[in-house]
Design a protein around this nucleic acid. Structure first.
Length: 551
RNA sequence: GUGCCCGUAGCUCAAUUGGAUAGAGCAUCAGCCUUCUAAGCUGAGGGUUACUGGUUCGAGUCCAGUCGGGCAUGCCA
């Protein structure tokens, strides 16, 4: 529909003898008294045309012509906006596609024949998921859903590392707790994981093995048990939020030789060296980012001979390119803000098309307990667990909480408030609209004479009230909203949009009798309800929240 | 110190990426159920968009500076 207008405006410009490189912007005014659509083209062009914007808009508007039955009125307003008012019957006619396309309504062709990999969560198995991790998880999942709606074939990936120092500390932590169970007196070090789950794991091991591991120095059984337990736990937490990954990529793979008989890590070093970006000093191997204008070089291989995290991260991203994804999307927490530019630089040097990479960085979640902000730490074991939150407010509200805010702003999570809000929760407003429609349609179906004539969709064109038209018009925006969400990786736009849809439906429901209206109008309003339900459903699916049929 | 993000109603956050009178939820106040789900609707109050300049037809949005908060600035990941 937008293209329809843009085409006509372009034609009008040509007729008026104006040529320009500038894009034609079409907006939906905040207030519908300024029309259904609006363009600022005259304001944008007034400078290069050396004309005052009012006059220019007049000239353009005179050249505009639309097919009969589509545009009711064109007018010039304010400093030189050209506003368009649609014919209500035209809006309602367009709305028929929301019903005929059903679950596919809103699907776009942007990502047709393209593949995308979305990497998110990627927590190492050192402890249960915290609320902070939940934000990235839900954000990533919604973004993956949006890309799917745009037509991409999406792979959801989890990148993890079950080797290295943190895992050793984890294994030692379990071992200490195990030794306590065996009756030893242990001074549990502060540097180790304090969380209660460590004891649970130790108990499991003790139940199974007794004190058979008491004299052994081998950490392997502790590590193995801990990793299995924690990973299972993480996956089940994610599963409660309906988050599942298609693939798990173990960082360890990057340390082992691949078909070229060299490890991917080694290959990165060699290739960067060829390009002149590797230096060796202080016993370590460095990526010379100082040559790229950065303050310091970055360590790729430590003097101990072990790679630092940056090296496998670069190698990992190369695998994403080699696996042929057309779009590479990463969801990071704010703590990775300094890291990813290095990766991008390295990939650029190695000749990869980094424009295919998009990074969404979400700011941290702070929790307030009793009015005090609590800093969370997995190691100290004082972090609020995602599982507890889901217990308190349920999966739908948990998901909505995380994505109704822009990823760029800090999210302050008042855990007690979240519990209280279980009744006044923002998610209920959306779901209630859906349940209401379902109930209405059940009644329409049950009562004789209220059965939907299959051919009655065109009757929607008979609706004339403002409540009906505004709702219908908003429903038509759904495909556009998906694309905007995808373009900026900002699912909160969808929440805002669906809230608007629910609001307009509730108002329509309040003001317009549906089942009690005369037959043609009744049919029309039932179809409008069907279209609304479809948009809500499709939107809920993207957000990953349920669409209850009754509440 | 430097880099990135943020500062909007009493609180938590939006604002079509530069558009017209800055909007929602919660909280407060006043109305609406013998009528399709009141988890709803209608209305009221609440704002110098941290501050100071600049850019232009037009700034919460862009630029510079100041103040305040978060994250990073490890041979931790």
């Amino acid at each position: 529909m937008r293209e329809y207008f843009i085409e006509h405006i372009r034609t009008a410009l040509k007729t008026a003898g104006i040529t320009t490189e500038k894009d034609i912007q079409l907006e939906k005014p905040a207030d519908n008294k300024f029309g259904d659509f609006s363009t600022n083209i005259a304001l944008v062009l007034s400078k290069e045309c050396r004309k005052n914007p009012r006059q220019l808009s007049q000239e353009i508007a005179e050249k505009l012509s639309f097919e009969p039955g589509t545009v009711r009125k064109t007018e010039i307003a304010g400093p030189g906006f050209i506003n368009f008012y649609l014919e209500p019957a035209f809006i309602m006619q367009l709305l028929e596609q929301a019903i005929t396309e059903g679950d596919g309504f809103g699907q776009s062709l942007v990502g047709q024949d393209k593949t995308a990999i979305v990497e998110y969560v990627s927590a190492n198995p050192t402890g249960p998921l915290t609320i902070g991790r939940g934000r990235g998880g839900v954000l990533g999942d919604c973004i993956a859903n949006i890309l799917e709606a745009q037509g991409y074939t999406v792979t959801r990936e989890y990148y993890f590392n079950d080797a290295g120092r943190q895992m050793t500390i984890l294994a030692e932590s379990v071992r200490f707790r195990y030794l306590e169970l065996c009756g030893e007196v242990i001074d549990f070090p502060e540097t180790h994981y304090q969380g209660g789950y460590i004891k649970v794991i130790a108990e499991k091991l003790f139940e199974k093995q007794g004190n058979a591991l008491l004299k052994s120095d081998d950490l392997a059984p502790f590590k193995q048990t801990a990793e299995t337990y924690i990973f299972t736990h993480i996956k089940s937490t994610l599963h409660r939020l309906d988050i599942t990954h298609d693939s798990y990529f173990n960082e360890h793979k990057l340390y082992l030789p691949d078909e070229s008989e060299q490890s991917p890590n080694r290959q990165v070093i060699d290739l960067l060296r060829e390009k002149g970006y590797i230096d060796e000093y202080d016993g370590a191997t460095w990526f010379t980012t100082s040559k790229l204008g950065q303050e310091k070089d970055k360590v790729l291989v430590k003097s101990s001979g072990e790679p630092s995290y940056r090296l496998p991260d670069i190698a990992y991203h190369i695998t994403k390119f080699k696996r042929g994804f057309s779009e590479i999307v990463n969801i990071f927490g704010a703590d990775h803000i300094d890291e990813y530019p290095d990766i991008i630089e390295a990939l650029k040097i190695l000749g990869y098309d980094t424009d295919r990479i998009r990074v969404a960085i979400n700011q941290f979640v702070t929790t307030t307990v009793n009015g005090e902000t609590v800093k969370m730490s997995t190691r100290k074991g004082n972090a609020d667990l995602l599982d507890d939150l889901i217990d308190d407010v349920g999966p739908d509200a948990t998901r909505l909480f995380f994505i109704m805010r822009s990823k760029d702003s800090h999210l302050n999570f008042d855990v007690e408030l979240a519990k209280k809000q279980s009744k006044d929760n923002p998610v209920f407003y959306l779901q209630y609209a859906h349940a209401r429609i379902c109930s209405l349609l059940r009644m329409a179906d049950q009562e004789a004479g209220f059965i939907l004539p299959t051919e009655g969709m065109h009757l929607m064109r008979k609706m004339t009230s403002d409540h009906e038209i505004r709702l219908g018009f908003m429903l038509l925006e759904f495909p556009e909203v998906i694309d905007v969400c995808g373009r900026f990786l900002e699912p909160q736009k969808m929440v805002e949009y669906l809230h608007g849809v629910a609001e307009l439906y509730h108002r329509f429901y309040q003001e317009c009798p549906i089942l009690k209206a005369e037959p043609d109008i009744r049919t029309a309003r039932i179809f409008l309800s069907v279209a609304t339900r479809q948009v809500l459903r499709n939107g809920f699916r993207i957000l990953g929240i349920s669409a209850p049929e009754s509440m």
